[in-house]
């Protein structure tokens, strides 16, 4: 659970990165970055892990 707690701290990075992108790029580019990035991470995990796919 300690490792899970560390992983969840990535939300702080999301706030920082989201705030910075809002400043430099605006709302819609930030939304698209979030969606495309999140979907990419999800599909990387699903394609790479057979156990996750079959779970």
């Amino acid at each position: 659970m300690s490792v899970v707690a560390i992983a969840v701290q990535s939300l702080a990075i999301a706030w920082l990165l989201g705030g910075w992108l809002l400043d430099v790029a605006g709302i819609m580019p930030t939304v698209l970055t979030a969606v495309i990035g999140g979907l990419t991470v999800f599909f990387i995990a699903i394609v790479a892990s057979k156990e996750l796919r079959s779970s």
């Binding site: 990535s10 706030w15 930030t30 991470v41």
Partner: peptide, 25 residues
């Protein structure tokens, strides 16, 4: 499988978590 669950939790949250500063904006 635990590695990929942690990977999903950490890295997808970095992107999808951007929704939280976007909503007030």
């Amino acid at each position: 499988v635990v590695f990929w669950v942690i990977f999903l939790q950490a890295f997808s949250l970095i992107f999808f978590g951007m929704a939280f500063p976007v909503i007030p904006a």
